[in-house]
Amino acid sequence: MKRLGKRDEISYAKWGYIFILPFFIAFFIFQLIPMISTFYYSFFEYYRSGLTIIGPNPVGLENYQALFQSDFPKYMGNTVIMWLLGFIPQIIISLVLAAWFTDVRLRIHGKQFFKAVIYMPNLIMASAFAMLFFALFSPNGPVNAFLVSSGISAEPFRFLTSVWGARGLVGLMNFLMWFGNTTILLMAAVMGISPALFEAAELDGCSSTQTFFKITLPMIRPILVYVLITSMIGGLQMFDVPQILTNGKGTPDRTTETVIMFLNNHLYSKNFGMAGAISVILFIICAILCLVVYFVLNPEDEKAQRRRKRGKELKKKQAARAGAAEGRA
């Protein structure tokens, strides 16, 4: 029906613009203008000292210089480490679960129940979850009570004053919150693979392990890339959990301070120049990651000729990813 008469096309085109207008107006006001002014302030000396506001005075790239001489690289490192602590177990467990759930040779009952249970933490308020963990893992909380009474530890283990204790807790929470979501996405991807491939593999005598590494993994590679990149973007935004867990201090010794916590501190202390510089660096990293996501979701831009053949499959995958995009954004 897109092949309308020329006159019709002209008269209906207007409606296309009208319908997409609210989205773009809201985007320009609430995202684009703020983004431009954020970038603008990154080139200014503009902060509060006591009660007086200094600036804005243009200083060129000084904020960026100061940023890289500050602890920013360390916070970047913290963010990456805590992201990896959650992501590595998350992707391994999710792959294994997706393979199990979709393996016809395994007869797992209650799939729906298990899916419902492992997805649940994804919907929990991260700040409440962090507060819960803080209470549970505090020196006189239930976890330590268990460790001491069962004889595993002679005295309460102070998770939040140990570097790897605190980072481990953040990683554990991120893992718990995201592995269910990833499992469901990967399952959808595996189920999108033509059953004929699996049947052929079985006829040829492939073991489950061989099938997994030689068929499943290569076939779901695009969605794996998608999961990896969106998880990286999510990891860069890590804030709620370490902020609440350490009361915004990144204890011990700022080893759990993330980039966004650093940004948050500058926003609260009204150091706009530095906050701007952090935002710009974050933007550059995210823009690169966004481009990758774009090409994963729109492979036809690269290989337009193959599009027709795989059109149907693509649509299926895209639809599956739409759910993912929603969850992680």
Binding site: I233, Q237, L267, V280, Y294, L297
Partner: peptide, 19 residues
């Protein structure tokens, strides 16, 4: 829209608060 699909809002937080 596809390009900004996964862009975090944090990158424009400063400008957003001022706006």
């Amino acid at each position: 829209i596809m390009l900004i699909l996964v862009m975090p809002t944090q990158v424009s937080a400063l400008g957003f608060v001022r706006l």
